[in-house]
């Protein structure tokens, strides 16, 4: 028997925050919005990093600019940390729900038509998360034991006494293992983005018949360009295209 549900009481009793944090769609909005914010950061960060291909002073000046505006940088960092926290929380909470929704698996568990990127979002996301921790320790906190060189990055100074970011990056990426880790990680990041960016627009309802396909294609193309951009840095260092001026 289909029994009676209290229909009228349903509509009220939920304010906007509980809609956002409790409903599946609300959590998807949070995931999508935080994801898009992180995506914007990934692009900005890449543009900053690509200055490595110019003269060493350029990227060092950029680094010094950030240091000189530390309030803004911390503002951005707190925002990004908040986004990461929300992104991960929603990912774990939705994944738990999703797992619970299918208690018994099929004999052949590959879902039809789902792309590899879409099926591995949690895995690629988690690996990227651990990579970010490593990346922060490596280049931001500059912990010596993770960089694989017998040298602390804190000691690298430019002629005018500022931190020599250019040399740090070059020395850091001259370690083949480290460089490989970076290439793999940005590869996973971009796999994650190739599905995630389009899906975020979908989750936020920001697509339609006309520009939906454009967004999906663009998200794949941009993801690939991001991969090329990020991966080019360690590869350029390894192959000696960048960093001639830094002593071996």
């Amino acid at each position: 028997m289909i029994s009676r549900h209290d229909f009228e009481a349903d509509a009220s009793g939920m304010n906007i925050l509980s809609y956002l944090f409790k409903s599946s769609l609300g959590r998807k909005y949070i995931m999508a919005a935080s994801g898009l914010a992180l995506f914007a950061f990934v692009i900005g960060h890449l543009l900053g990093n690509l200055q490595i291909f110019l003269a060493p002073e350029v990227i060092n000046r950029y680094a010094q600019f950030l240091k000189d505006n530390i309030e803004l940088v911390w503002g951005a960092r707190i925002g990004l940390l908040g986004c990461i926290a929300l992104h991960i929380w929603t990912a774990i909470s939705l994944s738990a729900d999703n797992k619970a929704a299918r208690p018994v698996a099929y004999a052949d568990a590959t879902p039809p038509a789902a792309s590899m990127a879409s099926r591995t979002m949690l895995m690629s996301g988690l690996i990227v998360f651990f990579f970010i921790l490593y990346h922060l320790l490596h280049f931001t906190v500059q912990v010596e034991w993770v960089n694989g060189v017998e040298k602390t990055f804190h000691s690298l100074k430019t002629a005018d006494g500022h931190h020599d970011v250019y040399s740090m990056v070059v020395i850091g990426f001259r370690q083949p293992l480290v460089a490989l880790c970076y290439v793999i990680a940005v590869g996973l990041l971009c796999l994650h983005l190739s599905h995630g960016v389009g899906a975020s627009f979908q989750s936020l309802g920001l697509k339609n018949k006309a520009w939906g396909p454009v967004i999906d294609t663009a998200s794949k193309v941009v993801s690939f360009l991001i991969f090329v951009g990020y991966a080019s840095i360690p590869l350029a260092v390894l192959t000696g295209i960048v960093g001639d001026s830094v002593a071996r």
Binding site: M1, I2, S3, R4, H5, F7
Partner: peptide, 11 residues
């Protein structure tokens, strides 16, 4: 009407 409790449905 089922939602409103006026019909009891027996599928």
């Amino acid at each position: 009407q089922i939602g409103l409790g006026k019909v009891e449905m027996y599928p």
